[in-house]
Design a protein around this nucleic acid. Structure first.
Length: 805
RNA sequence: GCCAGAGUGGUGGAAUUGGUAGACACGCACGACUCAAAAUCGUGUGCUCGAAAGGGCAUGUGGGUUCGAUUCCCACCUCUGGCACCA
């Protein structure tokens, strides 16, 4: 047997593919497919998770190309970011050198995958020719009022020494550095993603994404419909505004609570309460988010002031407590202790009045149900909760005390970072003119290279006079550049628009090429970006659409989330657990095709799972089995046309199965079907029952089916089968539905639903229940004698079930 | 607490307009080849009673619908992911 040498073969075809430029994208596509994997960060080496993302994605691209589609499958690098900067600080390297070295190392590794990337389309975000347009994007938003600077309580990462977006804080810890996040009042740059909150929720209905990701976005955006209500403050002209979803319970409002940061505190607090209030606020202010979250028991302090409940005209005390959040709603709530768990806890602890306004007879034993009736609520008593909500909001609107309002949990996107290795924010601060945008003609604002970091990694931009000192574009006076850079998620929020023509100079993207290729048809990547990149990219797309730059408002039509590959021990791979699988070890020894096949065979793509070296061996065996089946000489021994017809039928079923499974992203069952076929064909080969001519048809058809999965092996086989052109440019095989049909069926005989026997029947006889019952009785023969059949169910083509006593 | 998703052999997983549960693969056992091992090939492999024929039990748990339920309905348990004092 001539053994298959994957390393040699794969090197051979890599070279040929490169020389023949086989993966060049067809410009002016007729039947386009934009197949994109999520942007890669050049961290230094390609890990198995990358493979799991890229290889199956490439199988989709190759399959589509064989279906006659013009496929765009590009690859590039999200090359700004903290790890490069931290590495530079630690190792005394330049961030750009470290990044570029990684990109070149990783490109070599990526090439081994055998993906059909068109490298003429590649780019990296740290290149001025790219980030120029990230800055352009920022300026467009700035001029539309969608990019703005604001002083706010923000998340501060004390380890990486920068602020973070809400989306980058996980349970109070920074998602990258793992540091406990602090709260700081700082002036920062935001993008107005909240302007698109409604569209970001509503348009989820028109894209083909996993429901789980859509739900995460819906929850993160957190739309709720309620009412905005103004409560007069006793002995004051000021009002206390609240947001509530439970206007129906307004008669039960017995006190108010404001967040410790609420601006009204200063003016309403009475002298006698002043010291206590000050102490409370400073105690709370010292806490981190974590500490706040861990505070289980309610804390609070009375301001000494009272508001007036507009429904009951009663005076109700205004309290301060950290359980009310300043950055949601108005930072103040109307408390209904009888019908809200948190308010109840607070009232109980501080001895505040509790007034029930919903009957609980209808909701015995369960939480408040929708059909509870209002009580103690004046003219509204007796209404059910839902209609009371509507009536009370109506009353609030006519009396001008309040109005209906939709509220979101989503906050604006904080994009400024106090770090060096990122896209400079194109803003100039002038003492006279204030915040001034860099004129578009002056872009890019170039990030200076070869910089020395200051103490503790202090951004070199802060001390770089050449960068810092600038003339004001408006008054030409002395001015300073903004030294914050943008978060890398801004860079990656629009990159997919540039791939169709990455060298376009007249704008961020080529409008003609974008019209041809966008939106992205398949977007493949991990679920960790659910509320980060995937929402930011949607936002930017919607912004560009609203400004008329593009004619679509969703960037990714279909989203495919692969699972995560764990170590052999089933745990998440990490150096400290010593369970990291280096794909190179396997690629060099067994070939990229084996790795591709294993990753797709191990289970459903969305599930991931542990890397199992033993199971991997099994997939490798399959590769060799194919090689042997197709490359060893075929000899006719004793032809048998029935057996031949059976094999041909199995081939057509295989085509059908693989075609359907790939469309449904079920690579594992497609490969299982191929294995089954190879096993079957192998046994027939030894018997030599198939004509040589037919055998050749079968092997070459199988090779085409294999091509998207194992591109190198299939290409070599295709050549050995005496073909000139690449297998990857062949048309996908078609199946004949007539050949996929069975001519005989196995009919199951059940007694009381339990399998007792079975028989084989020609397909033309399998659909007459009467005939099936007759045959079943015949098959059971004397065993029928003792049975008292009360009923017979005969399902055509399936089974006969005798119901007996 | 809330929102998703999932529980099937020793293992990864197949199979759901309700109709042969366990495809394919790993592992294991036995056999062939070999001085031997590896590799390769062949056979077997859910549990259980039985010499066998043939039974019984099995898709997280408990109910229900049905001639028939992994699949549909109700209740519960466990696990995973996400969110979390959002008024």
């Amino acid at each position: 047997m001539n053994n298959y040498d994957p390393a040699k073969n794969e090197a051979k075809w890599r070279k040929i593919w490169q020389e023949t430029d086989i993966n060049k994208t067809h410009e002016e596509p007729k039947n386009k497919l934009y197949n994109l994997v999520m942007f890669a960060y050049p961290s230094g080496n390609l890990h198995i998770g990358h493979w799991y993302n890229f290889a199956p994605a490439d199988t989709l691209a190759r399959y589509s190309r064989m279906h006659g589609q013009d496929v765009l499958e590009p690859f590039g690098f999200d090359s700004f970011g903290l790890p490069a900067e931290n590495a530079a600080i630690q190792r005394g390297l330049m961030a750009d050198e470290w990044t570029n070295q990684n990109i070149s190392d990783m490109t070599a590794q990526i090439n081994k995958i055998g993906a059909m990337y068109d490298w003429s389309k590649t780019f990296q975000t740290s290149d001025p020719s790219y980030y120029k347009w990230t800055q352009w994007m920022f300026l467009k938003m700035f001029h539309e009022g969608k990019a703005y600077q604001k002083e706010a309580l923000v998340n501060w990462d004390p380890v990486d020494k920068t602020v973070l977006a809400n989306e980058q804080v996980v349970n109070g810890f920074a998602d990258r550095s793992g540091a406990k996040v602090e709260r700081k009042l700082l002036k920062q740059w935001f993008l107005k993603i909240t302007d698109y909150a409604d569209a970001l929720i509503d348009d989820l209905d028109k894209i083909d994404w996993p429901e789980r990701i859509k739900d995460m976005q819906r929850n993160w955006i957190g739309r709720s419909v309620g009412a905005h209500i103004e409560f007069p403050i006793d002995n004051s002209t000021q009002k206390l505004d609240v947001y509530t979803t439970r206007a129906d319970t307004i008669f039960g409002v017995t006190f108010m609570v404001v967040a410790p940061e609420h601006p009204l505190i200063e003016t309403i607090t009475t002298n006698s309460q002043s010291d206590a209030v000050k102490k409370y606020i400073s105690d709370v202010g010292a806490k981190t988010n974590i500490d706040r979250m861990e505070t289980k028991e309610k804390t609070g302090v009375f301001t000494g002031a009272f508001a007036v409940n507009p429904a009951t005209n009663q005076n109700i005390p205004i309290w301060i407590s950290e359980y009310v959040l300043m950055d949601y709603g108005t930072g103040a709530i109307m408390a209904v202790p009888a019908h809200d768990e948190r308010d109840f806890e607070f009232a109980s602890k501080f001895g505040l009045e509790i007034t029930q306004v919903l009957s609980d007879e209808s909701s015995e034993g369960s939480n408040q149900s929708a059909d509870a009736k209002l009580i103690n609520s004046g003219e509204f008593s007796g209404l059910d909760s839902a209609s009371a909500k509507a009536k009370i909001v109506e009353w609030l609107e006519t009396t001008e005390i309040g109005k209906s309002q939709t509220q979101f949990r989503l906050r604006d996107w904080l994009i400024s970072r106090q770090r060096y290795w990122g896209t400079p924010i194109p803003i100039i601060h002038c003492e006279k003119c204030g915040v001034v945008a860099v004129p578009e003609a002056d872009l890019p604002v170039v990030l200076p290279l070869n910089q020395k970091f200051g103490e503790d990694g202090r951004s070199p931009l802060l001390d770089n006079k050449d960068f810092l000192d600038v003339k004001c574009p408006q008054c030409s006076g002395e001015a300073k550049r903004e030294t914050d850079t943008m978060d890398t998620f801004v860079d990656s929020s629009w990159y997919f628009l540039r791939y169709p023509n990455p060298n376009y100079q007249a704008g961020p993207f080529d409008p003609v090429a974008v019209k041809q290729w966008l939106p992205v048809d398949n977007y493949i990547g991990g679920a960790e970006h659910a509320v980060l990149h995937l929402m930011y990219a949607r936002f930017v797309t919607k912004f560009l659409h609203s400004q008329g730059y593009i004619d679509f408002d969703e960037p990714f039509m279909k989203l495919i989330n692969q699972g995560m590959i764990n170590g052999p021990d089933g745990k998440k791979m990490s150096k400290s657990k010593n369970n990291v699988i280096n794909p190179d070890d396997y690629v060099d020894k067994y070939g990229a095709d084996s790795v591709r096949m294993y990753l797709m065979f191990m289970g459903p793509y969305e599930d991931g799972g542990p890397w199992d070296p033993k199971r991997f061996e099994g997939t490798y065996r399959f590769i060799n089995k194919i090689w042997e089946l197709i490359t060893t000489e075929y000899t006719e021994i004793q032809l048998d046309s029935i057996v031949e017809a059976e094999l041909v039928s199995k081939l057509h079923r295989l085509i059908k199965k693989v075609t359907e499974d790939v469309q449904k992203i079920r690579f594992n069952t497609a490969i299982a079907a191929m294995m089954e076929f190879v096993n079957f064909a192998g046994t027939l080969k030894h018997k030599g029952q198939i004509s040589k001519e037919q055998w050749n048809v079968i092997t070459s058809t199988f090779t085409k089916l294999l091509a998207p999965f194992a591109p190198y092996l299939s290409e070599e086989l295709w050549e050995l089968l005496n073909n000139e052109q690449s297998v990857h440019l062949q048309a996908w095989p078609k199946y004949d539905p007539n050949l996929c049909k069975d001519d005989v069926l196995t009919i199951v005989i059940q007694i009381n639903g339990k399998l007792r026997d079975q028989f084989i029947v020609n397909i033309e006889n399998a659909h007459s229940p009467v005939e099936l019952e007759r045959m079943a009785r015949e098959k059971l023969g004397s065993r029928m004698d003792n049975l008292e059949v009360v009923k017979t169910i005969a399902v055509p083509g399936k089974l006969v079930n005798f119901v007996v006593l």
